[in-house]
C-alpha cells in the first residue's frame, strides 16, 4: 500500500479571459493514512484549488494526483463523483446543509447516491449523528440547530460514507469560540480514535495547532511543511 495522497508536480492553470492564472505551480505533496494535516496560506495562495483537487472536485492541468494509489487526473466527472461518494467526506465553512431537510436526511445524502435501501440509509445516518453527539436531533431542521450543531451534522454527513479521508475547509470559520472548540475536539477524536485522515484548511494558527502537521502554501507551491507537535501513533510526519 502506498500513501493515501500523492501529488507530484501538480499544476493548475485557469484562463480568465486572456489572463492565465497559475493557481498551483508544480506542487508536490504526500499524505499518509491517518495523518492530521493543516493547510495554511494567505488568500490567493492556491490552497482552495489544492483542496478542490484533493477532494476530486477538480483535476490538475498537469502533474499527477494519486488517491489511494489510483490516478484521478484523467477520470470522467461521474467517476470523480463515485470517488467522492466512496472515499471522501467534506466539511465546509458554511456547513452547506440542504435547507428544510432534517439532520438525518442531510446525513443520509451520500448513502442516497449509493443506492442503499432507505432503512440502511437511516440506520447508518443515525449512527453517524450519534458519533458527533446529535442523538435525538435527527428530525431537527438546520434552522432549528445552532451553528455548531449544523457543522456536526455536516461532519456526520462526511462520516457516514465510512471514508478514511475528511476534508475540512475552514470548518470553524463561521462559528463562535465555544462551538469551534467542540468541532475541533470532534475532529481530533475522529483522527485519534478512528484513524481518519483529516486535511484541514485554515488561516487561524490556533486551529491549525490541533493538527500534527502544518503545510503552508504560497504562490501555488509548498512553502513549508513541518510537524507541529510530536504525536506518537500517527504515521511518519513531515520532511
Amino acid at each position: 500500500m502506498g500513501s493515501l495522497i500523492e501529488c507530484e508536480d501538480v499544476w493548475k492553470v485557469y484562463r480568465v479571459g486572456d489572463m492565465e492564472v497559475q493557481a498551483l505551480r508544480g506542487l508536490s505533496l504526500t499524505i499518509e493514512q491517518g495523518e492530521y494535516v493543516a493547510v495554511m496560506g494567505p488568500s490567493g495562495s492556491g490552497k482552495s484549488t489544492l483542496m478542490n483537487i484533493l477532494g476530486c472536485l477538480d483535476q490538475p492541468t498537469k502533474g499527477r494526483y494519486r488517491l489511494n494509489g489510483r490516478e484521478v487526473g484523467n477520470l470522467k466527472s461521474d467517476q470523480l463523483a463515485g470517488i467522492r461518494n466512496q472515499q471522501i467526506g467534506f466539511v465546509f465553512q458554511s456547513f452547506n446543509l440542504i435547507p428544510r431537510t432534517s439532520a438525518l436526511e442531510n446525513a443520509q445524502l451520500p448513502l442516497f447516491y449509493r443506492g442503499l435501501s432507505l432503512k440502511e440509509q437511516r440506520a447508518q445516518a443515525a449512527a453517524a449523528l450519534g458519533r458527533v453527539g446529535l442523538q435525538g436531533r435527527e428530525h431537527h431542521y438546520p434552522t432549528q440547530l445552532s451553528g455548531g450543531q449544523q457543522q456536526r451534522v455536516a461532519i456526520a454527513r462526511a462520516l457516514v460514507t465510512s471514508s478514511s479521508l475528511l476534508l475540512a475547509d475552514e470548518p470553524t470559520g463561521n462559528l463562535d469560540t465555544q462551538s469551534s472548540k467542540e468541532i475541533m475536539r470532534i475532529l481530533e477524536t475522529l483522527n485519534r480514535d478512528e484513524g481518519i485522515t483529516i486535511i484541514l484548511v485554515t488561516h487561524e494558527v490556533d486551529v491549525a495547532a490541533y493538527a500534527a502537521r502544518a503545510i503552508v502554501i504560497t504562490d501555488g507551491q509548498v512553502l513549508s511543511d513541518r510537524a507541529t507537535k510530536a504525536r506518537p501513533p500517527s504515521s511518519p510526519v513531515g520532511v
Binding site: G55, L57, S77, D78, A81, G82, R84, N85, Q86, F90, N96, L97, I98, P99, L109, P110, Y113, R114, R157, T161
Partner: peptide, 15 residues
C-alpha cells in the same frame, strides 16, 4: 448550492 453539495457528496450527472 444544494446541487453543488449533492455533487460533492457523490451525486452523478444522471442523479
Amino acid at each position: 448550492r444544494e446541487i453543488g453539495v449533492r455533487m460533492a457528496v457523490g451525486a452523478k450527472r444522471h442523479h
